[in-house]
Design a protein around this nucleic acid. Structure first.
Length: 562
RNA sequence: CGGGGCGUAGCGCAGUCCGGUUAGCGUGCCUGCCUUGGGAGCAGGAGGCCGCAGGUUCGAAUCCUGCCGCCCCGACCA
């Protein structure tokens, strides 16, 4: 494509309302423009990237037997009422004002609608149906550019099977396809097993990539692949070496010492010798939660350990419960339920609150002084701790969900009466799976994930809108122009080429634009090298540059790209 | 929906506290000359309902009230 008359509106400066790198660069490189909060237009260059990602997805979906559909975004609301999802989605579902339609946020209902008419016999199964279409969700707060929009492209597929065993097979096929898709896109992804939550069903996995713009915090082990949301992640923390000297409990006056930090400083001891108390209310009864040092309670784990919902006790409840205010509460002499983080098991010579304001107690031997404690894993995993599977170092970081695969079971087919007859003539609901990939997220995450620098994007061959950026440094010099035109024609036979043939742009301008747009290979045609019958190649990824003779050019680029 | 920030030329911003020339700067755009290996130079020029509506005032980008939009944090989230 010739750049001179192409609409590639690059920006020299960072746009005012973009904060994350992918958003900034997608705007600056002329891939997208904003239409409203969470609504983006893809310009020609950006749309080419969309098509690259879509094609990879399409090929892998077709390879597992998927059949591509094109479904309406405009849906009669009645269909959504059949599964009660108008209520379930609530304000997140867009409603049309002058007719009883909704804008589809996903397509389980619509696919099931078609399945219930068409799939009547086990002989029709399995089926895998997919589409790559725009979804609409009324996000309360769109953010981070295309990472969370009110309108976005999603590949969604749905499998229909005759049994749970066959669903397992369809699910497994998707799992494989997803791994190939993300690998081909060049993404460093990992898989988190998740509870399927509101979607219902028996199993699900999330395909995630690390990103500072991420919305979930996860723990991940690079060596064995263990991954979990930090709310449920487990780890092997460093073992606390307790002071084992035998001594009786003793009271210390600690005026105005409230936090563990203050206590540690006041007594000049290590944090690991302190035990922090927090009081939660569970089923209207107080529970004292004991943590080592200054560690925070992981409330998700606490709820799981206690078996029901909890809330932190209000400050004005504390004194009635424990006899002291926050900062002076402790296990010794406490009469209610006590649970402790398992890291405290065997703790001796600990310091904790005395349940009396401005006093703490030392010399606590948990086994001796507070024997009724039950121990659970209650802490949030931290970076650097050991993996519970393989012992290697865990990383804890934020991540973005790119894809999600679910075993839905019969939730939608049963609700909508999508039934088939099995070998024995019994009428049973179709057993379904649902599988999604956020297309824009693939693109934004790719850029976020180290595929950019201060000058712009660094595309790989798979996603790049073009393979080669051919820069003619001076279109006003006839011999330069002629050779550039010839090279353009020659390269087009084998590659996708963006030809910077702008007559007025200066060399420096073209270089800056090329780095910003970030095509993998830049071919620079300038007088300097041309006198030796050579052109310069720049590899965007590495910044490496070298001269190549005109005769070797195609060969050299082929080596670099394939 | 709560908290914070912002809205002035295509883009990035100053001016707003403390009302008072023709609303400015950088960049981009147009014309001409010149220039072409890292966002060149000179000269000339065009481009603004200062987010919208109402109010105060002799006079409002500036003060007051209401609304709208955008960004960030939180809540929420397949």
């Amino acid at each position: 494509m010739r750049q001179n008359k192409s609409f590639i509106p690059t920006l020299k400066e960072n746009p005012n309302d973009a904060a994350v790198p992918s958003h900034i660069l997608m705007l600056r490189a002329g891939l997208i423009r904003t239409l409203g909060a969470g609504i983006y237009s893809f310009l020609p260059l950006g749309y080419r990237v969309i098509k690259k990602v879509s094609q990879i997805i399409r090929e892998e979906m077709d390879a597992i037997g998927g059949q591509e559909f094109h479904l309406p975004a405009l849906n009669p609301i009645e269909i959504w009422q059949e599964t009660n999802r108008v209520e379930a989605f609530g304000d997140n579902l867009f409603h049309i004002k002058n007719r009883d339609y909704v804008l589809a946020p996903t397509h389980e209902e619509i696919m099931t609608f078609h399945a219930r008419r068409a799939l009547q016999s086990y002989k029709d199964l399995p089926q895998t149906w997919y589409q790559i279409q725009t979804k609409f969700r009324n996000e309360p707060r769109p953010r981070s550019g295309v990472l969370r929009g009110r309108q976005f492209l999603m590949k969604d597929s749905y499998s229909f099977d005759s049994s749970n065993e066959n669903l397992d097979a369809s699910y497994k096929l998707h799992d494989g396809a997803y791994r190939r898709i993300f690998k081909r896109c060049g993404l460093e992804y990992f898989v988190v097993g998740a509870s399927s939550g509101a979607m219902g069903g028996s199993g699900s996995e999330e395909f995630m990539v690390q990103s500072d713009a991420g919305e979930d915090t996860v723990a991940h082990c690079k060596s064995c692949g263990y991954s979990a949301n930090v709310e449920v992640a487990e780890s092997v923390p460093a073992v606390i070496k307790f002071n084992t000297e035998e001594r009786a409990v003793y009271e210390i006056s600690t005026p105005n010492v409230k936090s563990i930090d203050e206590l540690r400083g006041f007594l000049n001891i290590d944090e690991s010798r302190c035990a922090k108390s927090r009081i939660y209310i569970c089923n209207e009864k107080p529970v004292l939660v004991l943590m080592s040092g200054n560690e925070e309670v992981n409330e998700t784990k606490l709820e799981k350990a206690l078996g029901s919902a909890i809330r932190p006790a209000h400050p004005d409840e504390l004194k009635a419960i424990s006899g002291a205010d926050a900062g002076s509460i402790g296990p010794v002499g406490y009469t209610g339920t006590i649970i402790a983080d398992s890291r405290l098991f065997g703790g001796k010579n600990l310091f904790s609150g005395a349940n009396k304001n401005d006093f703490h107690i030392g010399g606590i031997d948990l086994a001796r002084d507070v024997p009724r404690i039950t121990y659970y894993d209650l802490r949030a995993v931290k970076s650097g701790e050991g993996c519970i599977r393989c012992g290697s170092e865990l990383g804890v970081f934020t991540a973005i969900e790119l894809g999600h695969i679910f075993k839905l079971g019969t939730k939608y087919s049963a609700a909508m009466g999508a039934l088939f007859k099995d070998e024995a003539g019994r009428e049973l609901p179709l057993v379904m799976g649902s599988y999604g990939i956020g297309v824009e997220r693939v693109i934004a995450c790719f850029i976020e994930q180290q595929h950019h620098d201060e000058n712009g994007i660094k595309w790989n061959k798979a996603l790049a809108p073009f393979h080669i950026h051919l820069l003619c440094l001076n279109m006003k010099k006839n011999h330069l122009k002629e050779i550039s035109e010839k090279l353009y024609a020659r390269l087009l036979e084998k590659f996708e080429v963006l030809f910077d043939d702008r007559p007025d742009a200066t060399a420096g301008f073209k270089f800056k634009d090329a780095d910003l747009i970030g095509l993998p290979i830049q071919v620079v045609i300038g007088e300097k090298k041309l006198v030796e019958n050579k052109v310069e190649i720049k590899v965007r990824e590495t910044g490496e540059r070298f001269d190549v003779s005109l005769d070797d050019l195609v060969e050299k680029i082929s080596q670099l790209l394939f």
